[in-house]
Write a protein that binds this DNA or RNA. Structure first.
Lengths: 150, 150
DNA sequence: GGATAATAGTTGATTTTGTAACTAACAAGG
DNA sequence: CCTTGTTAGTTACAAAATCAACTATTATCC
């Protein structure tokens, strides 16, 4: 692994490139939480997200979830089916608009959600503890802005 | 999309959960750059990363790239093969250790790298411009720490 | 009202990724 | 040397993501 290139003025370092950095940080900082929902609950990434949306915001449609979390509708559709098969959520056809399904967590879905939410809360605190309170708040603010969640 | 749940003390908001936030920010902030390497060069995410590692750091082995960027070796292997097929990189069997392949960019690989690097630089600047200089520097620092890149 | 377009969600075919098992080369210790 | 273990990289098969086409329902507007 020798140094070559960069004979021209080198104002670029991959390790500082924001999209790369964000991805590395996202990947690394979700590893531990991933192990919980994956190994312990056999859930996929999209599945815990759907579960958390329903747990956090209450009844929603697949479309709502997709647009909030920017998940493609086919991914949502498949995640919903699997959560339904595990009896974590139920669908209710909307009578006003019969294309729409109103999704909500079952009792056992809520139990799983509360369990995972506790773990998520602790894990988040652990991550944030690497910074001062002010820094962590600033970080969240900047990430929300980058994510277009303002 | 009604509000239900959270009857108990609600100290948790998905929109502030760092792993989620990081992922959303990473996803959103790489969209535009992705369009460039994907639509314009037919490259996959792992491929531009391998290309950038070689362009940025010079000759490396597949193993080096994988450990630096935390990419699994099978992913690296496949990305290398495709970049080789497109004549963007070349392999050289190491004579000291004949298991190892020393990878480096071809002339046209370097041309593509320089092109993409320029775009990356501009794009990064555009992202960083959403913050003050100090905030952006702090953001990068925090991300490096979260990514375990200290 | 009836054609046309738009929306919610699903399904199927293709591509990409993940997991394990594999080959080939080197290393260490007897 | 010669077993045993380790490392670099590839391949095969299963799982998951992507993209396009599909059904069913509602909205638009002439």
């Amino acid at each position: 692994m020798t140094q070559q290139n960069n004979t021209e003025k080198d104002e670029f370092d991959l390790r500082n490139f924001l999209p790369f950095l964000l991805n590395q940080a996202a990947e690394e900082s979700s590893l531990e939480f991933q192990r919980v929902y994956k190994d312990r609950y056999g859930m996929l990434r999209t599945e815990w997200r759907v579960l958390f949306h329903l747990g956090n915001y209450g009844e929603m449609t697949a479309r709502d979830i997709g647009s909030r979390a920017k998940i493609h509708k086919t991914k949502v559709s498949r995640a919903v089916r699997r959560l339904e098969q595990r009896r974590y959520l139920q669908r209710l056809r909307d009578d006003k608009d019969r294309r729409v399904e109103r999704l909500s967590l079952t009792t056992s879905g809520q139990a799983v959600y509360r369990e995972l939410r506790g773990i998520a809360r602790d894990y988040d605190a652990k991550l944030a503890a690497r910074f001062t309170t002010g820094e962590a708040a600033l970080l969240r603010m900047m990430l929300r802005r980058l994510a277009g969640m303002d």
